[in-house]
Amino acid sequence: MLAIIQAAGWPIWPLLVCSIGALAVVLERLSSLRTQRVMPPRLVDEVIALTRTSLPSLDVVKKLGDSSVLGAVLASGVRAVISEPRIGADALRATFETAGRAAVHRLERYLNTLGTIASAAPLLGLMGTVIGMIEIFGSQTPGGGNPAQLAHGISVALYNTAFGLMIAIPSLMFYRYFRGLVDAYTLEMEQAAARLVPHLLRFAVPRHAPAEPR
């Protein structure tokens, strides 16, 4: 491997940095986008069961918000009803939408970085190819070529092209996979929030009625 890096020349180093960055992002996103950390099964049913007769305490709501990404979205709605008993349907939906946007931003973390690496790696490989071609043409002199410089130029051109594609193709595949996963999670969170809105509104005090003292 060291011999390949030496043969590829200095243009390979930016590609190696990109490969390390892409691998780190992929591993981090594989861990962070697990179903258990984003959309635990039956969490909505558990929240509905928990709030069937009364609203939970703030400590319970905090634990719900810390449990997962979906939990944070659902906890925002429960917290809004607790803090504002006269909340209306539109205000509650707006609370869920705000929390949902924050959740989606959290799910999309580092995806732009991965997409940038997928786009930049072939260009970096192309740059190495151009540098290798320059060395090849530089080795051709009227009095005869330099075989060592010619071989080095070919190595730089081919190795960098191959490395660029080897980094770009998996990075693009994982980027598309993570993007589809985030879109699916976003849809599921919207459905969960829509399901919880009418349930939480049962605890809202009608605007024409006086609020009970706490």
Rank of each mutant, 00 (worst) to 15 (best):
N112I: 08
L150G: 08
L150T: 13
T95Q: 15
L15F: 03
V205P: 05
Q191M: 12
N112K: 09
L200F: 02
L123A: 07
L2D: 13
S19T: 10
A209S: 06
D183C: 05
D59Y: 00
H105K: 10
A24K: 08
G128Y: 01
I154D: 08
Q149T: 12
R202S: 08
W13E: 01
P206K: 10
A99V: 08
Q6Y: 10
E108I: 04
P210K: 11
V17L: 15
R101E: 11
Q36W: 04
E135R: 06
I136H: 07
V17T: 11
L126R: 02
S67T: 08
L158N: 13
P198N: 04
D90T: 07
E190H: 08
M166A: 14
V61R: 03
D183W: 06
L23C: 07
L123F: 13
L111V: 05
D45Y: 01
F137W: 02
A89R: 11
R86S: 13
G164V: 00
G153N: 11
L111E: 10
H152Q: 14
I136M: 15
M166N: 04
P142E: 06
V197W: 02
A204E: 11
G65N: 05
E212S: 03
Y185K: 12
A162Y: 06
S119H: 05
E28Y: 06
P147S: 12
T53M: 02
L187D: 07
G145W: 11
R176D: 02
W10P: 11
R37V: 04
M166P: 00
V60H: 00
L30Q: 10
L30E: 12
L114S: 00
G164K: 00
G132A: 15
S54K: 14
L187Y: 05
G65P: 03
L165R: 09
P213I: 05
L187A: 13
R79I: 03
G164M: 00
V81L: 14
A193T: 15
V38Y: 12
T51E: 01
V156F: 07
P210G: 10
N112V: 10
C18F: 15
T161H: 07
V25R: 00
R52I: 01
L74S: 01
L165M: 14
L201N: 03
S19C: 11
A211T: 15
T141A: 14
N146D: 15
L165W: 01
V69W: 02
F203C: 06
R86L: 08
A151N: 12
F137H: 02
A157P: 04
T113E: 00
G88D: 15
P142A: 13
H105N: 08
L124P: 01
V61D: 04
S67A: 14
P56H: 10
P170E: 01
L196G: 10
P56C: 14
Q36N: 12
M133H: 07
L111R: 07
R37Y: 06
L111N: 01
L33Q: 02
Y110C: 07
